[in-house]
């Protein structure tokens, strides 16, 4: 079973994402900010990460750059999932190493479509 780390400071969003991902047969872990996510990645890298942008302590972009600098940190597939929809933000995320980008609001159809594009389904 592939592992998914859901990183979002909103518990509601984490729950929505968990439900969608568990229905698609992923094992889901949660983190409420970038630092918690980084700590989780240091304990063990997940197969994929759903990543919010704006969070307290450490934001999504800082986390992504730190992740990609870790040994083996290239491996997890990272999908941003954020209300940031400006083209320049999307470009920044891709340059930092994001594999895909979901603009909120999202639904299960969008998540599924993005997961199959990056080869997770």
């Amino acid at each position: 079973m592939k592992t998914f780390l859901v990183v979002d400071d909103s518990r509601v969003i984490r729950n929505v994402a968990r439900r969608i991902l568990e229905a698609l047969n992923f094992k889901v872990d949660e983190a409420a900010d970038g630092q918690q996510a980084l700590d989780a990645c240091l304990r063990g890298l997940p197969d994929a990460i759903l990543l919010d942008w704006n969070m307290p302590v450490m934001d999504g972009i800082q986390f992504l750059r730190a992740l990609r600098a870790l040994p083996g940190g290239d491996a997890p597939i990272v999908l941003f999932c954020t209300t940031e929809t400006e083209l320049t933000k999307i470009q920044t995320a891709i340059e930092a190493g994001a594999n895909e980008y979901i603009m909120k609001p999202f639904d299960s159809e969008i998540v599924e479509s993005k997961l199959s594009q990056v080869g997770l389904l």
Binding site: L87, I90, Q91, I94, A98, E100, Y101, I102, M103, F106, E109, I110, S113, K114, Q117
Partner: peptide
Amino acid sequence: VQRGLPIQLLV
């Protein structure tokens, strides 16, 4: 634009 279109092509 989020169903089927890779983000790189959107950009």
